[in-house]
């Protein structure tokens, strides 16, 4: 890929998704583009990028999806889920005890491991049994990943990453060499393809937003824009959870970091509460 082609591709990707491409990763970019070349019948990457100038939406979307990173795992960064379970959830259970409504948005869900991990934590807390209404929305820019997430079927390799065996046995059904998430967990999650640069108008006000391992692919200006817009749909006492590599972003952009809980931020300074310990 010559530098002119790289610049063009990087520009399209940044304009459409906010994602920054690094020129040093040209080999990885070419590897990711080759399936698109084959799928659409192009001779080579140069031909594909030439056609991209004409703006055929299906082709642009396929190129964008090939460039997104979809690596994920159940309970990835275990501490995040402990913070959600032990700090965020107990406080919200008290704060929402009258309405018994909880709205959670998982903003970059990849193949669904993160929203299903959240669903498992909520299931453990038995909120639905106690009459709570849980709205758990999961989105990703990659429509193929969203379709996979909706299917909720994972390989043996995928369920081995981060998922304790007891959760596997109790929350999945085996299908040949794969594992399917239980219906009651799948029904808890509403999936939708969504670009974080698009309008957030369709989203409800949320009590918790998981936006993990997505911001790090954006430049500072795009990060600020996304965090601003998350702030607009986050409840005044709502919590934002970001990835370990993104833990300074929220702080820099006006969110209030939680004490001793890296990656957890509040929209505004929370009322002092005793830290609850619910570790099993």
């Amino acid at each position: 890929m010559n530098s002119h082609d790289f610049s063009y591709l990087a520009n399209v990707l940044h304009r459409r998704t906010g994602i920054i491409l690094a020129e040093k990763k040209t080999h990885m970019i070419e590897t990711r583009l080759m399936p698109v070349v084959r799928r659409f019948g192009f001779r080579d990457i140069a031909s594909l990028l030439k056609e991209l100038h004409y703006g055929h939406e299906a082709l642009v979307q396929a190129v964008i999806e090939s460039m997104t990173t979809n690596d994920s795992a159940f309970f990835r960064d275990r501490k995040t889920f402990e913070e959600f379970r032990d700090i965020v959830l107990p406080v919200l259970k008290l704060a929402r005890s009258e309405t018994k409504q909880l709205r959670i948005w998982c903003a970059a869900c990849a193949a669904g491991q993160e929203p299903y991990s959240i669903a498992m934590v909520l299931d453990d807390a038995k909120l639905i049994d106690a009459g709570w209404t849980i709205t758990l929305i999961a989105t990703d820019i990659n429509s193929q990943m969203v379709a996979r997430a909706q299917d909720g079927i994972y390989s043996q390799f995928e369920v081995q990453r981060g998922l304790p065996i007891r959760r596997l046995v109790s929350n999945f059904q085996q299908e040949g060499t794969s594992w399917r998430i239980s219906d009651h967990l799948r029904r808890m999650v509403s999936f939708r393809t969504f670009n974080l640069l698009d309008s957030y108008g369709w989203l409800p006000d949320c009590d918790v937003v998981f936006c993990r391992n997505a911001l790090m692919y954006f430049d500072l200006k795009t990060r600020a824009s996304v965090l601003d817009r998350i702030g607009e749909i986050l409840a005044p006492d709502g919590a934002l959870l970001v990835g370990p590599a993104e833990s300074t972003d929220g702080y820099a952009l006006g969110y209030v970091p939680a004490d001793s809980a890296p990656g957890l931020f509040y929209k505004s300074k929370p009322a002092p509460v005793r830290r609850l310990s619910l570790v099993k």
Partner: peptide, 26 residues
Amino acid sequence: NDPAHISEALGAGADEFILKPFDRGL
């Protein structure tokens, strides 16, 4: 990865499972 095998081993006191072939990351 037969659930019956897994359940039997959990009942006998296994803590976790690793599917072969394994690597350093796993």
